[in-house]
């Protein structure tokens, strides 16, 4: 359950986010569509404050953590993030990468000494089983294929036992078949664990296939917010002005 109210961000004179408001319910997968530079990535990064928003409020599970350092860590602990380039630590094992999702729940001294609790290990293995990679737990992360690395990224986010997950173009560098596996893993985890998922995509077809709801963004503002069925030609023209819808549907024909 993510509640975003009036979130705004400027870079100099460029308006990246213009008073964006949206909600994602527990167990719901909302997909954000929009052209490159529309502010999709800024939106996600303002929610977990990897980017500091200029104005607006974000509530996770009804809670708006204070804006100090502890509040920030508390917020991030409750919000998993999945990146386009998965952002795993290449030389660490798959298991240790997933365990990094537990760091915010661990005492700093024991994590620095590489001492992990039984409960943390159990959760890490369970999350790896969820993405069918438990047999690769001891492989080095960079020895895995792109799709497998992204699934480790999902497992790391799930290991946080988060209320919400932000996914920033999670399948942009993957082939269509692998992309479907990733999005399917994500949606299943969302439904089974009641996690609110907010996922940026640039492929309209995947959005239609996997979204419970689609949010369209153009020039930093929400221009569409409804179920995939309501996404008609006119709405697409609002999200992607000047583009033929045939062009948009082309890249997922594969």
């Amino acid at each position: 359950m993510i509640e975003v109210r009036g979130l705004s961000k400027r870079y100099g004179t460029l308006v990246a986010l213009d008073a964006v408001s949206l909600d994602v319910a527990a167990g719901e997968m909302v997909i954000v569509l929009g052209p490159s530079g529309a502010g999709k990535s800024t939106l996600l990064r303002c929610i977990n404050r990897l980017v500091q928003p200029d104005a607006g409020e974000v509530r996770i599970a009804g809670e708006a953590p204070p804006r100090d350092r502890d509040g920030l860590r508390h917020l991030r602990a409750q919000v998993g993030m999945i990146f386009q380039d998965h952002n795993l630590v290449p030389r660490l094992s798959v298991l240790k990468n997933v365990l990094t999702g537990r760091l915010s729940h661990m005492p700093v001294w024991s994590s620095v000494l590489q001492l992990f609790g039984e409960e943390d290990l159990r959760i890490a293995h369970e999350c790896l089983r969820r993405v069918q990679l438990d047999d690769r737990a001891w492989s080095r992360a960079n020895r895995l294929s792109g799709g497998q690395q992204q699934r480790v990224g999902i497992a790391r986010a799930l290991a946080q036992q988060p209320h919400a997950i932000l996914a920033d173009e999670p399948v942009a560098s993957l082939d269509p078949q692998t992309a479907r596996v990733i999005l399917d893993d994500l949606r299943r985890a969302s439904r089974e664990l009641g996690i609110a998922v907010l996922c940026n995509l640039h492929q309209v077809g995947y959005a239609m296939e996997f979204a419970d709801r689609i949010v369209g963004i153009h020039a930093g503002a929400v221009v569409f917010d409804a179920s995939p069925k309501a996404l008609d030609e006119a709405s697409l023209a609002r999200i992607y002005p000047g583009l033929e819808s045939a062009d948009l549907r082309e890249d997922e024909a594969a």
Partner: peptide, 17 residues
């Protein structure tokens, strides 16, 4: 960035990333 996003502390980010 990946580790900062998990809520890890600065020391944990240095040690693990």
């Amino acid at each position: 960035e990946g580790l900062r996003a998990t809520g890890a502390s600065p020391l944990q980010v240095i040690v693990f990333a």
